[in-house]
C-alpha cells in the first residue's frame, strides 16, 4: 500500500448528505474483476448523461456540465469535501478504489459510514471528519476562491491554508499509522500465526460443530 503523510491539493465541493456507495460507483461497474480502472466511472450517474457500461470509452460520453467534477476548476481536485454520512450503503471496496483511481487522496466530511471509512484506510485514502461549522466554512472558501487548496499534514493532524486558522483533526492512532507506514496488514497478522493456531485448537475442542468439513 502507498504511504501517505503530507498532501496538498485542490478541493472539490460535493454538497450532499448521505452520498452512498451506489452513487460513488454504480453497480454495473462492480462486475469488474480488477481493482484498477474504476476512476473513469466515479459518480457515473451524476457525471455523465448516458448510461455507462464497464469498458466504455468515457471520453466520448455526454457529460453533465453541472456536476462539480466536470467543472474545469475542480477537474484536478484531489480532496473531496462533503456532508454527513458519506459512503453509506454497501461494503463495496470499489467505492474507495474508484475515488483513489480518479485521484482523490483525502475526503473531508461531517461523518462517514463505518464500512466505507474502514475501506479507505486499506486504499491509501485519508477520510477526515470535521464539525459542520468548519465544513460550512470550507464549502464557502472553496466556492469563493478559484483553485482553493488545502494542505494536509497527517503526522501532526493539521489542515492548513493561508485563508484559514489551522484546523486540527482527530484520527485513531492505529488508522494513522496504517496510512503513514503503508504496512501489509496480512503480513502483520501472520506474525501471530502461532497464537491463531493455539486459539483455533481450543476453540475446536469447545465448539467442534464449527469445524465441519464442507
Amino acid at each position: 500500500m502507498k504511504k501517505i503523510k503530507l498532501w496538498e491539493g485542490i478541493v472539490a465541493p460535493l454538497d450532499r448528505q448521505n452520498v452512498d456507495t451506489d452513487a460513488i460507483i454504480p453497480k454495473q461497474f462492480l462486475k469488474s474483476i480488477y481493482r484498477t480502472g474504476l476512476g473513469n466511472y466515479l459518480f457515473d450517474e451524476w457525471r455523465y448523461l448516458d448510461y455507462g457500461e464497464l469498458g466504455q470509452d468515457c471520453r466520448k460520453r455526454p457529460i453533465n456540465k453541472e456536476f462539480i467534477l466536470n467543472k474545469n476548476r475542480f477537474k484536478n481536485s484531489s480532496i473531496l469535501l462533503s456532508r454527513s454520512n458519506f459512503g453509506c450503503g454497501s461494503s463495496r471496496e470499489h467505492a474507495p478504489w474508484a475515488l483513489e483511481n480518479f485521484g482523490f487522496k483525502v475526503i473531508i466530511a461531517e461523518s462517514f459510514a463505518d464500512i466505507f471509512y474502514n475501506n479507505c484506510f486499506k486504499n491509501s485514502i485519508l477520510p477526515i471528519t470535521l464539525s459542520s461549522v468548519i465544513i460550512d466554512n470550507l464549502f464557502n472558501l472553496t466556492w469563493d476562491n478559484w483553485g482553493f487548496t488545502l494542505k494536509i499534514d497527517l503526522k501532526n493532524q493539521t489542515i492548513t491554508n493561508p485563508l484559514l486558522k489551522t484546523i486540527q483533526f482527530d484520527i485513531e492512532e492505529f488508522r494513522k499509522m496504517a496510512l503513514i507506514k503503508g504496512l501489509d496488514e496480512i503480513g502483520q497478522t501472520l506474525i501471530y500465526s502461532e497464537e491463531i493456531k493455539k486459539f483455533e485448537k481450543k476453540h475446536k475442542i469447545e465448539n467442534p460443530w464449527l469445524f465441519n468439513i464442507l
Partner: peptide, 9 residues
Amino acid sequence: GIGTSEVEH
C-alpha cells in the same frame, strides 16, 4: 460486512 481487502485478510 467487510470490504474486499478484509475478505482477503
